[in-house]
Write a protein that binds this DNA or RNA. Structure first.
Lengths: 240, 240
DNA sequence: CGTAGTATGTACGCTAGCGCACAATATGGC
DNA sequence: GCCATATTGTGCGCTAGCGTACATACTACG
């Protein structure tokens, strides 16, 4: 299964730039393929580029001393990897790995920085995105505390679905478990329920969503909060 | 017990500004008292000012539909309330309430925005702070998932202690529980253990830390990660 | 100095999720 | 087409933390 050739404006941040601005960046945007499991950034590691996914999805996660891990946010075609470059820290304690193989564009770090410091539309877009990312991370924190595995699985599936054009995700239960920071068996159980309710179907590393509305019936409020906040922040992003 | 009169440079962000810059802001910085429980911002609410605490501590938290809540980060003399103003969203789904009464300074929102848009040292400091805040929120998300109430209590006490000049916090177990998003009884139990180990002493709304090192022995790694990241980000903040 | 109201202690059954062990089954590579 | 391996199913016992209920004790305030 091959993804179609990516277009720049499949990434929402690039699409939100004024045409002239995007045209200016175009020669520097390098199209790349991101294979599943690729580690784009380790904890404390420094990024040479920032990444704008089109069809790929990147997972931002932490790995604890005892080996367990949790995703704090995902980055798909709605976003960008590498905010620490312009926020000023240059790196973060976060890991970034490719959770769904696909394409994207990247831009050399110094170039992005230079553009950001123009204080133009790009800065505006990137800061808004960062704000939305903060909401996503915060909601993850609260969701981790208060909601069941099934609810969180639904949230995660919906967010992932929104970043794809397809109803099928290539994803093992083991991998989902490590994203949510729970046991694989916990995902088996929750996914089993969803399958019985004919909301999803899965087979060895492939999950097909049969009934999106069904997912929305089982999800916690966290999905909506994140979704609406992204919409709100980007509705008027091009107005000055 | 009255807090001493606050100094501008007790807030680390203000202290990180070049003297000339701070001097320029000075006439606009209004000293205020923040009483316990004061709601500075509701979910979706718009801030008229940004706040730089000196002795007060503000809690950033989410309230879920079912009424339960969790803190995602605290804001004390190391930080600022109101990043959404310059990040571009104007508001967030977060609540901000005063968790420890004390003093601080505030600045009118339009003025801060104007200063931020100068792209000078203030912008640099605020973006770095935002980056550190993201780390704090992320670590909270992971901690919520993987660590025990006792570990989280230690983390919370240490972070709070670092924002005060005192070894005593005015704080009921009920309030701590609502911060951590757990039952009050869970705090009673964890605090009981710490008291038996002679690490803390408490009486009706007052917690005294007897042995800081003891807390550090029971805390999870999350405290250190957050602490070190703040240090790292502000070590060289004044270099261009 | 007494008391109302707030804060803390304790107990008990319950549930979600963990850790572990192992069985069953699909699939890609040969 | 077969097999090694990755993936999923299932079944324990266990623990942390929840929900509830109620007892105790402090302290602020009259």
């Amino acid at each position: 299964m091959q993804s179609p050739p990516p277009q720049l404006n499949q990434n929402h941040l690039l699409a939100a730039l004024p045409p002239a601005e995007l045209e200016r960046l175009k020669p520097h945007l390098e199209q790349i393929h991101m294979p599943l499991g690729d580690v784009l950034c380790e904890s404390g590691g420094r990024l040479s580029h920032v990444y704008f996914p089109t069809s790929a999805i990147i997972s931002l996660h932490y790995i604890l001393e005892n080996g367990s891990s949790s995703e704090v946010a995902g980055v798909g075609n709605e976003g960008m990897l590498g905010i620490s470059l312009f926020m000023g820290g240059e790196n973060t304690p976060t890991w970034a790995t490719v959770q769904t193989a696909g394409h994207g564009y990247r831009l050399k770090a110094p170039l992005l920085l230079q553009e950001f410091n123009q204080s133009g539309p790009l800065q505006r877009v990137l800061l808004r995105y960062t704000q939305a990312l903060i909401t996503q991370i915060s909601q993850t924190a609260v969701c981790n505390r208060h909601h069941t595995i099934e609810q969180q699985l639904c949230r995660w599936l919906l967010l992932t679905l929104d970043r794809l054009n397809s109803q099928e995700l290539v994803m093992t239960q083991e991998l989902i478990a490590s994203m949510l920071g729970v046991r694989r068996e916990g995902i088996t159980e929750a996914a089993g329920k969803l399958q019985q309710a004919e909301i999803i179907r899965y087979r060895r590393g492939h999950i097909t969503v049969l009934n999106r509305a069904g997912l929305q019936g089982h999800v916690c409020e966290c999905y909506d909060v994140v979704k609406k906040e992204f919409e709100r922040l980007f509705r008027d992003v091009r107005k000055p």
